[in-house]
Amino acid sequence: MELNTILLVFPEQVVENTLYLASKFTKAFNSKLIILILEKKEHQNEETIKMKLNQLNLNYQLFIEKNGIKDKINQYVDKYLPDLIIIPHEKIDPMVHIFKHPATEKFVEKFDKTHILFPIIEAKDIQKSIIYIDPDSDNEQYIKASFEILSKVSHTEFIYAFHEEYFEYSLIKTHPEDEAKRIIKELYQEGIEKSKQLIAKALNKEVTLKVIKGDPKKEVPFFALKNGYDLLAINIHHEDKKSFIENSEISIGLFKG
């Protein structure tokens, strides 16, 4: 997997942690870094930013634009065709999140042209990442892309969540209890097997697959947080993408399939 161009977008101001994170990816993939700063309130000191970037010894181009996240990013995506976009975001308290829906989040939820890293501003590094796999909707391309990008900078594992309750409630209406339980057990095993096969096909090697039970959009972000992962990767086309983003208190990676 090659990342020729990385577009790093700062929606308000330069976040040093994200800058270091982006530099890690840029160096790992020997990419060209396009930095776009969307000036909002404060005037960005271009010289200071350039000084920091020079210290990092990066191949970059810097652009400072007037605010307008959606249009500007699309404009730069069309012009530079980046393979990865990095946009930092503020970790929002879940209680505050109920009432607050930041523009960056809205953008990321709608955007699906290329891979996106959506790191929290506190994240300086990604040491442990976990890729969520839904064997019914994910494909080999998604697994390959997400793993090859993330494993180059972090220890990467996969996770599959079996939504047992969902099957329980639907099967209990149509089947006797014992039969429903048997089918659920089979579906559980089938889900694990399908996930393993999909990973094996995509990567040609064995990797760790964590298996949990519960509603994926709720349980997977919780598992990732509880177990010290720095980033959770999901498919950019996943139907519950918005929920995964809003329910995660860690960085998110959205990868194209």
């Binding site: 879940p94 999140h97 109920i98 009432f99 509603d215 959009k217 709720k218 349980e219 919780f222 947080l225 509880k226 918005k242 929920s243 809003e246 329910n247």
Partner: peptide, 14 residues
């Protein structure tokens, strides 16, 4: 101390 949550569901519920 951590909690599992679903922001969208919480928003709708509230």
């Amino acid at each position: 101390e951590r909690a599992e949550f679903d922001v969208i569901l919480m928003r709708k519920g509230l």
